[in-house]
Design a protein around this nucleic acid. Structure first.
Lengths: 233, 233
DNA sequence: TGTATTTTTGTTGTCGACAAATAAAATATT
DNA sequence: AATATTTTATTTGTCGACAACAAAAATACA
């Protein structure tokens, strides 16, 4: 495994591998918010020319995960704490809308997939694997949105979930407090409502779930002394 | 003005000019939905290498305005009539949310800008300039969203407004029926509500306005015989 | 004549190199 | 010594060329 060149990926797969890998690292905070992203460096690392790297970075910029400063460096998008209220607002609305639609449009197969992801989530909680928990939680809600089948909502929600994943990762990595098993129960209720096609209940649980997450993030921020340092910049 | 090379644009402006120009042509239906977009052709046309053209196309793909078929052509995104219900749903929700937020967060300066755009819109209606009308209408609502100051909603709404602009252009170009002066009045009421910070009224007018547009598009579709030909493909 | 196989053509994905633009370093100036 | 100016260095934006892939054309075969 000492090889830097791991067998040429098929034509056209260059951009997507760079894109997927970088996206994963940004969401995991392996790449710190605000840190510079060097094209030539990535070019060497992925063993490909700068062209596909650039195309991957453009996609990441469209996702809001990196920011491109013209003629200067590209940096990993900073976590914008001042904009959090807008994030909460959009997140809550999308939680509600996607869960509602899922209750309306879900197929039995989709409910199965959602239940499986909930199983994975429970496993991660049991294993106290925080990183995995956050990751699976994102896919769980994304899958619910998919069952709603409105691509406009799906796209925005995925973006919000990614942003939320970074945010949670940011605090979990430093706090290491008790894991929120509360979510497990809410997820169960959510799935049940979706399966019964009970739109109003689905909506209510979704709102409750969103509020819970907002409160959790807020409580982290209040306790976090680093925030002052961040804001001072 | 017979020059094909119109003086080299400054470094970094290559991508944006190609992007803006193509976006405008796609929204105006100068480039027909489904028609192929050739990189070398554009390269010659804009007097630049294929690299900036490609980067512009990637951005357009992220906007959902072109579709890239791997290793084959890029085409202008087709108008997806089967997905219209989802479009209506998202459009209506975003109309409401952005107008509500505008009523909450607007500054006096922003109201002035909105009023100015409404003036432009009225001019276009008076001049019976359909193309201009559709264009200004898009900027009018986009400006309202900006006054709401939630970037997540702004981005989705802009995308929906663009999609709507193509849709309206598609029908106006063929029907040429009476211009909807009804919208003028609704716009006025909308601005007033925003200026008074009357959130609930703003919401109500927004919903009413969205429903009006949906009805209009629907009535076009019912009357349109081309639709069968389109769907038959 | 109709189908399968090969050849050709055209377009995309990738590459390495150069030039413009900016930041950092070095020098000059008061 | 502190500021202003020039020089250097690094990184991006763009270019032209080549190779891989898919579709179309041409050929072979039944």
């Amino acid at each position: 495994m000492g090889e830097t060149t791991q067998g040429k990926p098929r034509r056209g797969h260059g951009v997507s591998t760079a894109y997927e890998t970088l996206k994963g690292e940004i969401l995991e905070l392996t790449l710190a918010p605000g840190s510079p992203v060097d094209e030539s460096e990535l070019s060497k690392r992925f063993g490909m020319s700068r062209t596909p790297i650039r195309e991957a970075l453009i996609k990441l910029a469209n996702d809001g995960l990196v920011v491109t400063l013209p003629n200067r460096a590209t940096i990993v998008a900073p976590l914008d704490f001042l904009d959090l209220p807008n994030f909460y607002d959009a997140m809550t609305l999308m939680y509600r809308v996607t869960t509602r639609l899922a209750a309306q449009n879900r197929t039995d197969e989709e409910v199965q997939v959602i239940r499986k992801l909930q199983g994975d989530y429970a496993d991660a909680v049991a294993a106290k694997n925080v990183s995995r928990m956050i990751e699976v939680n994102r896919f769980f809600h994304s899958q619910i949105a998919k069952a709603g089948k409105n691509r406009y909502y799906i796209d925005l929600f995925d973006r919000l979930l990614d942003e939320g994943r970074r945010l949670l990762r940011f605090y979990y990595s430093s706090f290491n407090d008790e894991l929120p098993e509360v979510y497990l129960d809410e997820h169960e209720q959510m799935i049940d409502a979706i399966e019964r096609c009970d739109v109003e209940t689905a909506d209510r649980i979704a709102k409750q779930h969103a509020d819970q997450i907002v409160r959790q993030i807020q409580s982290y921020i209040v306790d976090d002394r680093r925030l002052n340092a961040e804001l001072a910049i």
